[in-house]
Design a protein around this nucleic acid. Sequence first.
RNA 1: GAGCCAUUAGCUCAGUCGGUAGAGCAACUGCCUUUUAAGCAGUGGGUCGUUGGUUCAAGUCCAACAUGGCUCACCA
Length: 512
Amino acid sequence: METAQDQGFTAGNLQGENTFNMDQHRLEKLQKLTENNVQPYVNSFKIPFSIKEVSERFENTDGHELLEKKYTFTVAGRVMAMRQFGKVNFLNLKDRTGNIQAYLKKGDLAEDQYNVFELTDVGDFVSISGFVFRTKTGELTIYAERFSLLTKSLRDLPEKFHGLKDVEQRYRRRYVDLIVNDNVRNIFRKRSAIIQEVRNFFLSKDFMEVETPMMQPIAGGATAKPFVTHHNALDMPLYMRIAPELYLKRLVIGGFERVFEINRSFRNEGLSTRHNPEFTMIEWYMAYADYYDLMDMIETFVRNIAIKVCGTAKIPFNGRIIDLESPWKRMTMEQAIVDLGEKGITLEQLAEYDSARKTAEDLGIFINNSWGKGRIVLEIFENTVEEKLFDPIFITDYPKEVSPLAKSRKDNPEITERYELFIGGFEVSNGFNELNDPIDQKERFEKQVAEKEAGDEEAHAMDSDYIRALEYGLPPTAGAGLGIDRLVMLLTDSQSIREVILFPHMRPEDAG
RNA sequence: GAGCCAUUAGCUCAGUCGGUAGAGCAACUGCCUUUUAAGCAGUGGGUCGUUGGUUCAAGUCCAACAUGGCUCACCA
């Protein structure tokens, strides 16, 4: 049998280097185990039942019946706590489904197994076979008749009571965070459930799930700086996608009238509690629908997901309750500025460039000379209204100037048929009737290209193939994106996006 | 990119006016046959983020740097 020593992996030489700062006592135990021909890392171990299956089966069985019937099971998991009490020992075992207590008594176990147990630490993976009983306090417990070590852990877990709190260490060692902080585990379980519910909703509406390129020759579909990479064999630059939008609409043109993609996108911008360089969203496109249909869909599925995942549509967030249950408000951007923004602003002030600019400047908002009225109105909205939007609200009638891919209204070409959804003070979703006039689209791209040449790194590049695709004909289509990370933040009462991303981006630990 | 705050034992944290580094948990050694933040007695554990500076003397004061958090800017 190959031992740790054969692999040059001994306590002695690890202590000598001590590169990994492992616990010396654990290394000594590891060495003793290998000296006694006990595998500290077994190759394979299979168990028929999870801890939850065992504990749920007997949760209503009283102690007398358990002693009489002696139901015997094998469980496996990580040792989370050990309490020695004379010749008996209690340990808490944890697997993906839950916790159960085990009881080990010296003399009841074969001596060689008890010797292995004595070399076991909190953090090790073990398996225990025995019958189920209840302790004096009534706690369901496995009475160990067989014990084996499955995997030795060489590092101490954080303290049992306070756990791991240091935010930096929690993100850098998310695995430890997940081992000891059940609330963190639950956030990511909820995240997974939310994504499944989103997927199920669209599948149930006859949408097709697709995958489009993450590396693109032209990064389009949003206003954002892309990450750049390079393809060696083709000797060409490639951009990490900032949105899947233009590819998804090509698919609608190709006849897939209802498509969605749960996608990771990448934006080369600053980090914040609401921005991670890579983030997850869902985009969906639906032919023969308009942006009112999109708003109806979102309201339905977000409310239903909240009920399914949180058990209620009135969810706690940042010390308040967000009401997802009542019908969601819809309001035009200019009306929102008047009703919800700084007092004293009128619709008339927002109607013309000069008065809108003066209104903005009076509010201390910086105005670039190249901006038109639409951009100025958006700035006023973002500065005075956005953070106040706590309960869900759809803001509609976005200016054409800031909506290069949305269709203009027939009665007012400067306004697009578009909404943005705000919940909890930030944007969660954005959707609109898709611009399908290739000539109009080409003109808007050209305008963006001019802005790009003037120095705006976030302006759209010309995507000639997309124009060509539109020339074949895109049916009347509505499309939307919804930030999954932000939805998860809302439904888990997380104030930082990094709390809902398993491995948020960090600078290297050893920098400098 | 800017401002503010933090960094002390494996973890959670104290550390007063600048005067030789502390606690709890964890670990280790004993005792204890139904404990559960078990208990009792004892032991070991530190480059106080890094590098400079001031001072007789720095965890403590100053500066720079590193990492993180929050706020702002950019953005979804």
